[in-house]
Design a protein around this nucleic acid. Structure first.
Lengths: 112, 112
DNA sequence: TTATATATATAAATTTCTTATGTATATAGG
DNA sequence: CCTATATACATAAGAAATTTATATATATAA
């Protein structure tokens, strides 16, 4: 993941969980396109990063899958499992705390 | 680095550069203590992460070193090289962009 | 027919970090 | 005196996440 930065390491699971909390189900390619769209092309989520992450999260019980054939091509849809749904909030809290601490360390926020 | 998160991967170099841009020179142990202080103990910068990072940055020409003996113990001070000084601003811009994009993806900021 | 988009997958290599260990001095407390 | 903790640096082994490269296959636009 990333164009020009190595900063996004560790954030991928959280991004996937958040997206799936807002969408009933999504397939891998769709997620890559959504990331591209939202970040206006700044961030390219590579397949080599995404698919192993999805597989791992499924193995961990955070995601569930269902396959469909659309236009004669396979689509593997992912959705949140019960555990995955429970994990969303805490992962987002962690991300918020992470951003706050990073802003503190880099003094990106004015401290009045 | 980190208590409870793997999120800080990739941010260490930027944190070091920023700290050294605000301090003429710092030594490794001092940096770990500063991080602990600023984040109120939330973040523990491990020696196993810090020292290799410092060595790498020195090898890359971003940092320069000088050693002193204080209280009969060795201190290896690091300071920004010319290249290191030039890298600070761009690394901070990258970090800002990273935070913005992450906030967009996780919808952490309200979008009016 | 050729390039691009759609769609998934995995192996090899790289990077970064954690965990563990090693060395050595100083100091506070019992 | 002895022991734990703090100060101070360093590195090796292993784990985890990502990049790069490759593979397969269909659809579509030029």
């Amino acid at each position: 993941m990333a164009v020009n930065t190595e900063l996004f390491k560790g954030t991928l699971q959280t991004i996937i969980l958040k997206m799936l909390s807002e969408n009933e189900k999504m397939y891998g390619y769709e997620i890559t396109q959504r990331v591209k769209l939202i970040t206006q092309g700044e961030l390219i989520l590579k397949e080599g990063a995404l698919y192993p992450a999805l597989h791992k999260m499924e193995a961990e019980g955070l995601l569930e899958t269902s396959t469909e054939i659309v236009d004669n091509r396979l689509r593997k849809y992912y959705s949140l499992s019960k555990d995955g749904g429970k994990a969303v909030a805490s992962k987002l809290e962690e991300a918020k705390a992470f951003i706050s601490q990073l802003e503190l360390l880099l003094k990106l926020k004015p401290s009045y």
